[in-house]
Amino acid sequence: MANMIDLIEKSEVTGDFPKFQIGDTLRVFFKIKEGDKERVQVFEGVLIGERGGSNKRAITVRKISFSHGVERMFPLASPRIEKIEIAQTGYVRRAKLYYLRDLRGKKARIRERQDYKKGKDLSTAQVNAAK
């Protein structure tokens, strides 16, 4: 009967997100509550890690805000995530980009993905077109 649990977990995965990869720069539209009002806040940064699957899948996004590094985890099953956009694709060779925490400025850049292998590694424009 464990498949009942799978069923519940799958029904929790409701968001329709683009296929982003580690190293991409994402724009996460996140609903926040201020008193009675609800508004959408955009968090834009580099996707530096991903964990969990199914309804437990979560992403870590890092950005530099007023010269301070800010990282935020978003559970993808959260009803508070409105949408996610890919601002720029990135080419990296690691699953977790924790090394970015030690780098500043020009060193913390990520090369953009190019379409040199067919069917793999689409660049920003192509990813957005595919949506």
């Binding site: 009967m1 464990a2 009942m4 649990i5 519940i8 609903k31 309804n55 437990k56 959260s78 009803p79």
Partner: peptide
């Protein structure tokens, strides 16, 4: 009832709760 196992779900307000699934 039968205990099927545990998972986690989001409730409307965006709060994640750990739940046990029971089959009745």
């Amino acid at each position: 009832a039968t205990k099927l196992g545990m998972t986690q779900i989001f409730i409307e307000e965006g709060v994640r709760v750990p739940v046990t699934v029971l089959k009745m």
